[in-house]
Every structure is written in C-alpha cells, then in structure tokens.
C-alpha cells in the first residue's frame, strides 16, 4: 500500500451528510474503524473513500482536531503533561452539551479509545453536581417513577441531594 518515498498518505473520509474529509494517515489510524477497514481491504486503492454513515461533519471536524493535536503531542515525546491538559481544557471549554454528546457518539462509533476516556471523564465531571432532572434531560431518560415512588427513593439517601448545583 503505502510506498516508500511517498511523502504523506492521505485518507478520504465521507460523512453521513456527504462531506469529504482529507485526513493524514497517522491521524486516521487513530480511528479503530478506519484502521480495521484498511486491515480488511488490504488492496484498497490509495484514493479509496471510507464511508462513515453514522457521523456527521461537525463532530468529525472536532474529532480530527483533537486527534491531530494528540498525535503531535505523542510525536514530541509525550510533550509534557501540562501542555496536553491545557489543550484538553481549551478544547472542551466552549463545547455545549449537545456538541459533547455528538462528539462522544462519533468517538464511540469511530472507536477512539483515548478520546472516549477523555470524553466520559469530561461528562462525568459536568454531571457530578447536577440535579436528577438535568441528567434526565441530558441522557434523554424517561422518568418511569410515580411521584410517590420517587419521593421514597429520595428519602432513602437524603444527604446525597445536598449541595447540588443550579442548572
């Protein structure tokens, strides 16, 4: 496949909404799904377009940004933990909950372990001090308790409901 002397191999990814992305090979290989695609079709041509039917353009752009940065960090020899932390904090800062959810879904589909760990951690931190209603809305969970039942469950561990942030 990849020939010696060829400077950089570029992999084409096609999202569900029809956009085409050009990604450097090392970054694309972060995606387990892309990697396995090439492992399975070894004779795939260089310009094969990998279809990603479950991912739309917006989260993919975010994921590529994240992976690019991390691949670079690794190339720089782990590149100082503080730097990575700083980047992660910046990266997550202006993302809304909706964006986060899309990101984690996409990351889950693409099967990027590092990013999944990071995103679950981030979401856990966001949800840590939130109320039950907020989390229900976040995950889209339907409340199947009757009000009496819910009251009983709440009563059981009342202290756990102290110190909840405002939504």
């Amino acid at each position: 496949m990849s020939k010696l002397g060829q400077a950089k191999r570029i992999i084409f990814l096609k999202t569900a909404d029809g956009q085409l992305f050009e990604v450097d090979e090392p970054v694309a290989m972060e995606f387990e799904i892309v990697k396995s695609f090439f492992d399975e079709n070894e004779d795939a041509a260089d310009d094969t377009v990998v279809p990603l039917p479950n991912v739309s353009a917006e989260p993919l752009a975010g994921i590529i940004e994240f992976c690019k940065a991390h691949v670079e960090f690794r190339a720089n020899g782990a590149a100082g933990k503080d730097e990575v932390k700083k980047f992660n904090a910046e990266y997550i800062k202006e993302k809304s909950n909706e964006q986060l959810k899309e990101l984690i879904l996409a990351a889950n589909y693409l099967n990027i372990k590092e990013m999944l760990d990071f995103l679950t951690e981030t979401i856990a931190n966001r949800l840590k001090n939130k109320s039950v209603e907020y989390v229900r809305a976040f995950f889209g969970i339907e409340n199947d308790f009757t009000p009496q039942e819910e009251e009983a469950v709440r009563k059981e561990y009342e202290w756990a409901f102290e110190g909840v942030d405002e939504d």
């Binding site: 679950t120 951690e121 856990a124 949800l127 840590k128 001090n129 109320s131 039950v132 989390v135 229900r136 995950f139 969970i141 339907e142 409340n143 199947d144 308790f145 819910e150 469950v153 709440r154 561990y157 202290w159 756990a160 409901f161 909840v164």
Partner: peptide, 14 residues
C-alpha cells in the same frame, strides 16, 4: 467515573 454520592442521587433517574 462518578462519586458514590452522585450515584445515589442518580438512582432517581428511572
């Protein structure tokens, strides 16, 4: 990844 206290609260989710 959530602490136990939060989990206790989240028993109310459903």
């Amino acid at each position: 990844k959530l602490p136990a206290k939060t989990l206790l609260r989240f028993r109310c989710l459903s």
